[in-house]
Design a protein around this nucleic acid. Structure first.
Length: 568
DNA sequence: GCCGTTTTCGGCCCGACTGTTTTCAGTCG
């Protein structure tokens, strides 16, 4: 029996109970028990007695005991018998929760999506108490859309939408403050919808502007303080707008940035002081409501430092405040170790990229164009690479304020050899190795290729180690644990590729890398000057794994990094 | 269902919106 199975069982029980229309507090007790186990970093065998944990009582503890003893839970088996499978799918329908689904099942015997459709078409649903004509119509409409709508949208699809909406808001005369909130602001890889908080004294005028400027497929809600729409283009994504007055902006932004668990922890903190947090401010013990000019002031009122949105997740961030001072920040970044120029498939010249990095106040940069194997990307032959190397040396004299290193992003070929020989690699300041081909090879072969790179003395870093595209493809699925072990053993850097398409490695692997003491570099892999801005997303992604400045080599001063690179 | 020393019963984070009602339940975040 492993911890994951226990957690999944408790969550499944909660879900099935919800579908029975159970008391929501009872349902959440099972969810909380699952979360308690999840948040405990110990494995099951390291735990003395999991049933003694706070939040686990007689019933949830009984489930754990059952699983440990018999490998199954009688409670779950019982529930699975009582609750038809099809009810779980009904939860995907917006507006349908446990209570309504339980009622439809109890009174009309509806247990599948198809059954629900038939009942609606026969107008049986609107006859139930608590249901009506509109509910029935809405269910039918949502059933039609169910198959076509993705559950979550990757960050790179949302980014242009967010930029567009933020610019609309910031350029509107009646908007004094506006920000995206929700999981997007927390830099989650994917989001279910978008949330915006808007400070204004003229809600109607801002709403009118948004209705006119956005391509809206459906108005989901249209109230005095909140408007929800489904966009038609470029994605059918739901967007929520919350309107507040300027003085409430900071606390509303905090509230709608979440996460839910972070907010619950904050509310518990407030409760200990006999205060009450709402999105409009903090109600003190004497009944007065305090508002804040910024989130920093809000946290300060609780004697807390500013907690970056990226780490507001499990609520456990409040137990790790002493680690905040070491957490990597954008202003700590002094170099970018992976970028392309017109020499291969980049859009800008060497000079332009150098000036772009100087504009970012970087102290060091590495030019890493593709190697010859990557024909589609105009990969450099050894001759052209040597030529580029010479050119960079000349440019270094023209730009003395930044260290310009000569590097390559060298392909690891499908047969497990490297694209350049050791003699050439030895002439370079920095060598990246990466896989761009034959993703579908068996893991064993992929690992053979990665080992060839890691074990080569000239290779400094493995770029985008899994080849994944967020929300699109899993990449070549290497044994990342093994790769990280090798990186430790051979003292190599693994990349956190900051391009929002990639964000590779993913957060759990970054946590593991730091745990093992493996060095990480956050790089933009810029193919365009504009891509240098991805550093910000990369840093926030790194924060989600609680990576420290020390772990991230591009926070290091040039001397320290150069010393490391000349270690052999 | 779980918790707790101002509690072993009564609250559990809190508020907006919709659709159903005719004062509120359900859902959502």
């Amino acid at each position: 029996m492993d911890k994951k199975t226990i957690i999944r069982t408790l969550e499944r029980i909660a879900l099935l109970m919800e579908l029975q229309g159970e008391n929501p507090f009872k349902v959440s007790a099972f969810r909380k028990a699952a979360q308690t186990l999840e948040l405990d970093s110990r494995s099951l065998s390291e735990m003395d007695d999991p049933t003694k944990l706070k939040g686990i009582g007689a019933a949830t503890g009984g489930v754990i005991t059952d699983l440990l003893q018999d490998g199954e839970s009688t409670l779950l088996l019982e529930l699975e018998k009582q609750v038809p499978q099809g009810l779980v799918e009904m939860l995907q329908i917006p507006g349908m929760g446990g209570k309504k689904i339980a009622k439809l099942y109890a009174e009309l015997g509806i247990e599948t999506l198809e059954g629900l459709r038939e009942a609606c078409e026969k107008n049986e649903v609107q006859a139930l108490a608590g249901f009506g004509k509109k509910t029935e119509e809405k269910i039918l409409k949502e059933l039609d859309q169910l198959a076509s709508r993705p559950e979550r949208y990757p960050i790179w699809k949302l980014e242009p939408i967010v930029e567009h909406i933020e610019s609309l808001l910031k350029n509107h005369q009646d908007v004094s403050n506006a920000s995206v909130a929700g999981s997007y602001r927390r830099t989650k890889e994917t989001s279910k919808d978008l949330d915006f908080v808007i400070a204004t004294d003229h809600v109607e005028s801002v709403k009118e502007m948004l209705k006119k400027s956005l391509d809206i497929e459906e108005m989901i809600a249209d109230g005095d303080t909140k408007m929800s729409v489904a966009l038609a283009k470029p994605e059918r994504v739901d967007v929520d707008f919350r309107f507040v007055v300027e003085s409430e902006f900071a606390s509303t932004l905090h509230h709608f940035t979440g996460s839910k668990d972070h907010n619950i922890r904050m509310r518990q903190l407030a409760k200990e002081k006999d205060w009450k947090i709402s999105e409009y401010g903090v109600e003190k013990e004497d009944g007065t409501v305090t508002t804040y000019a910024s989130e920093s002031e809000f946290f300060a009122d609780f004697d807390l430092p500013f907690i970056p949105p990226s780490i507001r997740e499990s609520g456990q961030e409040l137990d790790r405040l002493d680690e905040l001072k070491d957490l990597v920040q954008l202003e700590n970044i002094v170099s970018d170790l992976h970028m392309h120029t017109t020499w291969s498939d980049g859009a800008h010249s060497l000079e332009e990229m150098i000036e772009g990095c100087i504009a970012k106040d970087y102290k060091l940069m590495v030019i890493t164009d593709h190697s010859r194997y990557l024909r589609v990307a105009n990969g450099l032959t050894p001759e052209r690479l040597r030529e580029q190397n010479e050119k960079i040396k000349e440019l270094q004299k023209i730009y003395p304020d930044i260290h310009i290193l000569s590097g390559t992003e060298m392909d690891i070929l499908p047969d497990g050899t490297l694209d350049f020989d050791d003699e050439l690699l030895a002439e370079l300041d920095f060598v990246i190795a990466s896989i761009h081909s034959s993703f579908s090879q068996p893991q064993e072969k992929i690992m053979e290729r990665l080992f060839a790179a890691v074990s080569n003395p000239h290779v400094d870093m493995i770029a985008h180690p899994t080849g994944r595209i967020v929300g699109e493809r899993d990449g070549y699925e290497p044994d990342v644990e093994q790769l990280l072990q090798w990186a430790k053993e051979y003292d190599k850097i693994v990349e956190l590729n900051a391009n929002p398409y990639r964000l590779d490695l993913a957060v759990p692997w970054l946590e593991r890398a730091q745990e093992l003491g493996v060095k990480v570099a956050i790089n933009t892999d810029a193919h365009h000057l504009d891509h240098l801005r991805f550093m910000d997303i990369g840093v926030r992604h790194a924060q989600k794994a609680w990576l420290t400045k020390e772990t991230i080599v591009n926070t290091w001063e040039p001397k320290k990094l150069l010393d490391y690179l000349s270690r052999n």
